[in-house]
Design a protein around this nucleic acid. Structure first.
Lengths: 163, 163
DNA sequence: CCGACCTAGTTCAACTTTCAAGAAGTGTCC
DNA sequence: GGACACTTCTTGAAAGTTGAACTAGGTCGG
């Protein structure tokens, strides 16, 4: 950061621009699709999906936040809203009195059943139908590399000499 | 959409999940980086970059919105905010009285000069430093395909029989 | 068991985004 | 030139997000 700026090459700029455009367009597209068909934004829908796949359709708030890559604050607001819709309810965690469980209700499950096919179709149409199987593999690998590099690492784990 | 749901395969699900995680983590990361170093979210920063590259550092609102893949409404609010910061100003378009030009001010240009190196470094660190040159090519091609499929097409252009 | 420190979750205020509605200008067709 | 449709941009209210502050409960060393 103290050295001369290491600008992006033209090729890199093109890629970066394409990345920004594609990701923005896709997220907007899915947000609108789900707002229209399921009455919630994409990220809220993702929370219901997570819960539907968890044992007993319930999860600790912090775990749900981590899996969904959002802050606890954001999750807290989101669950409040989903609770008002009757799709999720909260329950005290029996083993840790600080904890809360977010639980998918039957109504929430039904929303998923009803809207999942349309959502999958939208995802397919935007991504998997347009890419070759090889490209899908490449994309998966690339995204895994990037996600790994961005994982909020535990500072202590990285800096053992501070312990 | 009337046929049986065409679920994602396990491989596709893994890819989709990785995509969601990586894109979310990166956008959050850049938002925080720019909020801290430049005092604005990533998308606002992108607007300044666009303007800085336009002839005479100015652009019609609609064009800027299109290039940035955001709605005109969102842009309008954003420019209002950037105007309050003194980084952008508005001017009437001489050739079309409905039009407005968004113009990058000197102060806006200086913010870019000051913060661009750090931002590029963050982008590099998250993406280009972690991917092989081949992967960068692959990513670029994949993102171009996706963006093209999501481009909001002019309905009339697609449905000439309606004219 | 006590104090210091950590973690879980919520809340508040400030900010951003969305959607629908509206003001104002342009283009076209007759 | 006037009706009509369309484009440009803004606005206002509702919804969502952020970051910091806060409450409450857990943990660990002495």
């Amino acid at each position: 950061m103290t050295s001369a700026p290491n600008w992006l090459s033209d090729e890199e700029q093109r890629t970066w621009r394409a990345y920004l455009h594609a990701t923005r367009l896709l997220e907007d597209h899915l947000d609108r699709q789900l707002q229209r068909d399921a009455g919630m934004p994409h990220i809220y829908y993702g929370l219901l999906v997570q819960l539907s796949q968890a044992p007993r359709r319930r999860m600790r708030m912090t775990e749900l936040a981590k899996n969904s890559k959002i802050t606890r604050s954001r999750l807290s607001h989101a669950v409040t809203r989903l609770e008002k819709n009757g799709w999720v309810r909260r329950e005290d965690c029996p083993s840790d009195k600080r904890g809360q469980l977010a639980i998918l209700t039957d109504a929430g499950y039904e929303v998923l059943e009803r809207t999942a096919p349309g959502h999958v179709a939208a995802v397919r149409q935007a991504m998997f139908d347009r890419l070759s199987p090889v490209q899908v593999d490449q994309l998966g690998e690339i995204m895994r590399v990037m996600a790994q590099g961005l994982q909020p690492t535990d500072a202590k784990a990285d800096l053992p000499w501070l312990r």
